[in-house]
Computed example of a mutant assay.
Amino acid sequence: MSTPRFLKLPPGVRRTAVATSRGSFAALEALPGSGVPERRPALLVPGFTGSKEDFLGVLQTLAASGRRVVSIDMRGQYESSGPDDESAYTRAALGEDLIALLDALGPEPVHLAAHSFGGLVSQEAVLVDLVPPASLTLMSSGPSAVGGQAAGKAQALRDAIPQLGMPAIWEIALEPDYSKRGLEPEIVEFIKARTLGNSETGLVCMAKEILTAPDRVDDLAKHCADTGLRTLVIYGEDDDVWEPSAQASMAERLNAAKVVIPGAAHSPAWDAPETTAMALTSFWNKCENPAR
Rank of each mutant, 00 (worst) to 15 (best):
R194W: 13
R194P: 02
R194I: 04
R194Q: 15
R194M: 15
T195Q: 12
L196Q: 05
L196F: 12
G197I: 08
G197V: 08
G197M: 10
N198L: 14
N198F: 14
S199H: 09
S199K: 07
S199Y: 13
E200V: 10
T201L: 10
T201C: 10
T201W: 13
G202K: 04
G202R: 06
G202S: 07
G202M: 06
L203C: 11
L203W: 07
L203R: 10
L203G: 08
L203E: 13
L203P: 11
V204K: 15
V204T: 13
V204Y: 11
V204C: 14
V204M: 06
V204P: 07
V204Q: 09
V204S: 11
V204D: 06
C205G: 08
C205F: 10
C205Y: 14
C205D: 15
C205L: 13
M206I: 07
M206L: 08
M206V: 10
A207K: 08
A207M: 08
K208R: 15
K208Y: 07
E209K: 03
I210Y: 01
I210F: 00
I210W: 02
L211N: 01
L211D: 02
L211G: 02
L211K: 01
T212H: 06
T212Q: 05
T212K: 08
T212P: 02
A213S: 03
A213M: 03
A213L: 00
P214K: 00
P214L: 01
P214H: 01
P214R: 00
P214Y: 00
D215N: 03
D215V: 00
D215W: 00
R216T: 05
R216V: 03
R216N: 03
R216D: 01
R216L: 02
R216W: 01
R216H: 02
V217P: 01
V217K: 04
V217A: 03
V217S: 09
D218S: 12
D218N: 06
D218V: 09
D218C: 01
D218F: 01
D218A: 12
D219T: 04
D219L: 15
D219M: 13
D219R: 13
D219H: 09
A221T: 09
A221F: 06
A221N: 04
K222F: 08
K222E: 12
H223G: 02
H223K: 05
C224H: 07
C224Q: 05
C224M: 08
A225V: 11
A225C: 09
D226C: 04
D226I: 05
T227C: 12
T227E: 12
T227L: 14
T227G: 09
T227H: 10
T227N: 12
G228I: 11
G228M: 10
G228N: 07
G228E: 10
L229C: 05
R230W: 14
R230T: 15
R230F: 10
R230Y: 12
T231E: 09
L232W: 08
L232N: 06
L232M: 13
L232D: 06
L232C: 07
L232E: 10
L232T: 03
L232Q: 11
V233S: 06
V233H: 04
V233F: 15
V233A: 11
V233Q: 04
V233T: 06
